[in-house]
């Protein structure tokens, strides 16, 4: 399936700059979510036009959130290039994101699966709720891991949950227990993905070359920061204050101790491996609810946590 999956009817040519903006946005994305949709959809035997619709939907929602996110965070770069709001204008970035979400509703309503529309609306609502709450966490130095997990469930988890559930809903497999299990799996995937992304900020398994300490420098404690600094926040405030003001990773590791960093990284990986084991357990539960011709879906789902967290295939 294509990643750049929109048609001329999605973005009228008479609207200035819109096509150019979307061309750049969709060109550089990895399309992980739409590829996931493609694999699950194929395993379920969905028609290719339905798979394309679902893939387009998730990419539209995801990219809409990126357009808005970059503006809200005032991030100058996206995927190594100038963010849309800097290259064009903030107004265009807002309108372009809104337009993508509107196109999602137009295309899904034309498809006619009301349950799918409800599911999508809920996912967008959760995503925005998560964004709203996360914005208040910037410069909040007493945030805890459980708080971040709640936000990430809404923000990141909502789209993963949608990716797992939407193909079944598109197939009219509206079984509450099945969808509930998929929701549990999607929740775990969302947390793992976010925590892995947070590790990149500390140059851990950072093959994609993401900017280092970007979150900390902008006053945001991500999940790994909280994990690293929790005991200093309780017992050694001065060290905590020194650590959060660091401008480089070397300085940061000096402030908290290299050994402490490595030890806490091992603990963090261990805790997330526990979540991966829990995910595999949930997959086993899921198998009991799948029809015989659906069981191959679990093969695709099995390797996901490794991909998302460890960023490698088995």
């Amino acid at each position: 399936m294509q990643i750049k999956i929109y048609s001329p009817s999605d973005f009228p040519s008479y609207l200035p700059k819109l096509n150019g903006l979307y061309d750049e946005l969709f060109r550089d994305g990895k399309g992980f979510r739409s590829r996931l949709i493609g694999r699950i959809g194929s395993a379920l035997g969905l028609e290719s036009r339905v798979i394309d619709l679902l893939g387009q939907t998730i990419e539209f929602i995801h990219n809409a959130s990126l357009l808005h996110d970059d503006l809200v965070d005032r991030s100058a770069l996206r995927r190594g290039k100038p963010a849309a709001w800097t290259k064009y204008t903030p107004e265009y970035a807002v309108l372009a994101g809104d337009y993508l979400l509107a196109r999602v509703m137009v295309n899904l309503s034309a498809h006619g699966n009301i349950r799918l529309i409800q599911e999508t609306a809920q996912a967008i609502s959760d995503l925005l709720e998560g964004e709203w709450i996360q914005d208040s966490l910037v410069r909040d130095m007493s945030v805890r891991l459980t708080d971040l997990d709640r936000v990430h469930n809404l923000k990141t988890g909502s789209l993963f949950k949608w990716c797992l559930r939407a193909p079944f809903i598109a197939k009219h497999r509206v079984d509450d227990r099945l969808l509930g299990r998929l929701e549990e799996c999607g929740t775990i995937l969302g947390v793992l993905f976010q925590r892995s992304d947070d590790l990149l900020d500390f140059d851990v398994r950072n093959d994609e070359g993401k900017a280092i300490l970007g979150d900390l420098k902008s006053g945001y404690l991500n999940s790994f920061s909280v994990w690293l600094l929790a005991e200093f926040r309780e017992n050694d405030r001065a060290r905590f204050e020194r650590a959060i003001k660091c401008q480089s990773l070397g300085e940061f590791k000096s402030a908290i101790g290299e050994e402490h960093f490595e030890s806490r990284l091992r603990d963090f990986d261990q805790e997330n491996q526990r979540l991966i084991d829990l995910y595999q357990h949930r997959l086993q539960e899921l198998q009991a609810d799948l029809l015989p011709d659906e069981v191959s879906v679990t093969r695709d789902l099995k390797e996901l946590p490794q991909l998302l967290y460890w960023r490698k295939r088995n």
Binding site: L154, G157, R177, G180, E183, E184, T187, I188, L278
Partner: peptide
Amino acid sequence: LVSSLNPHLFRSVQLNEWTFE
């Protein structure tokens, strides 16, 4: 008893299932 990370658990039929580690 394993806590669910899913904040919507109370709306889910998974409420009748209990996972232990």
